[in-house]
Simulated scan of single mutants.
Amino acid sequence: MNPSAESHSGAGASTAAEAPNASTAPELGEHRHVGLGAIAGAAGVSKATASRALRHPDTVSPGSLAKVRRALAILGVDSGSHDAPSRQMVALVKPAAPAGNVDPYARLFDLLTSRVFAQGIAAVHVEAAAYRADALAESLLGSAGSEPHVQGAIVLGGGAAGELAAKLAERHLPQIRVSNARHEDGISRIVLDATDGIATAVQHLVHLGHRRIGLAVLRDSAAAVRIAGFRKSMAQVLHIPATRDQAPVVEAAGGTMAGVAAAEELLHLQCSAVIACAPSLSFGILEAAARARLDVPRDLSLLTVGDMPDADVIAPPLSQVSYDWEAIAVSALNEVRTMMANPGEAAAIDYSMTPDLVLRASAVPPQRR
């Protein structure tokens, strides 16, 4: 098998910055032999599965085939696929999760990685860090006037990732953003519209009989829209003015302890149910309820808006309003590949993804406490 100099993979901001010039990557023309055991180990499959994937790819499952192709790319080995695009790399960018916080894009990031490698394209992982947008952009694009090291990008989230997206846009790199806020920046975007999800959560809790519902939301660029959507839904469903007193909201920083503080404030306001707009806030609310010797859901119902890792195995299993991450991954990759095939010609897209309600055991009719 021949090495592929285009197949680099980085993890973290520093690795991504070095990926295009990594000294460990094989040079064109360099011959390198990688054993079947190394490929199987990197892919997390058996040697037999790895062998079938290399010799008879149609006899293994799509998931196993994607793992083997990803391992080949990471090891710097050409899979021998003649229909894979030549010299193509896509940057997958997400913001670094703050210490103690839960990465809300973890599942989408993994799905995108699998799909990119399954299509024979190399992925460069980038964790965007504050104040490093210029350096990261240069590592991905090279110097002005040169050919970029990557041919496209999928950028998840805002903050530092948004700053990097702006730098990539200045060099006209085909890219699409997936975020929870809409901006007039001319970049193609898939918006994770939480306002409809919040409205669904309000309707469900009111249907259960709750009238005192609180909202815990991260203090970020999407907070104002989410708060407005929450109060509008409360007013429409409960036929109340939905003032601060009647529709209490707490804005919190990231991290579980911020969720604890938010929950304590909402409990003090006698909320019988809370809608949390981030995984870290949900964990904080569970912790605050335990400290107050309250049972979830008997004493406090909890419903999470957004992706909640392992929501079905948490005690109690958490009801949530979640997105179809598989559909989002497919849409994002298809869009950026279309842009890469027709650079400068594709019109910018801008559409929203509405989440669905997944009922589990953390929300029940209110009881006295």
Rank of each mutant, 00 (worst) to 15 (best):
H207F: 11
A262C: 09
F230N: 02
V260E: 05
L208Y: 10
H268F: 04
V249G: 11
S233K: 04
E265M: 09
H204K: 08
V249D: 04
Q246W: 07
T200C: 13
V274R: 01
A235T: 07
H204V: 00
I240V: 15
L269R: 15
H239M: 10
A235V: 05
R231H: 12
R226K: 13
T256W: 06
V202C: 09
T200Q: 15
I240F: 03
H204E: 14
E264I: 00
S272E: 08
G214F: 02
K232M: 11
V250C: 06
G254W: 12
V249I: 12
H268D: 12
S233H: 09
A201F: 06
L215Q: 03
R231E: 04
A258P: 01
D245R: 08
C277W: 00
H207P: 00
L215Y: 07
V225W: 01
H207S: 13
V206A: 12
I240H: 01
A247V: 07
A201W: 06
P241W: 00
L218A: 11
Q236V: 01
L218M: 07
E264C: 07
V250P: 02
A247T: 08
I213Y: 12
A242M: 05
V260F: 02
I227R: 10
I275S: 03
V225N: 13
Q203W: 03
E265V: 08
V260G: 09
H268M: 05
C271W: 03
A223H: 08
S233E: 03
R226E: 14
L266Y: 08
L215G: 03
G254Q: 12
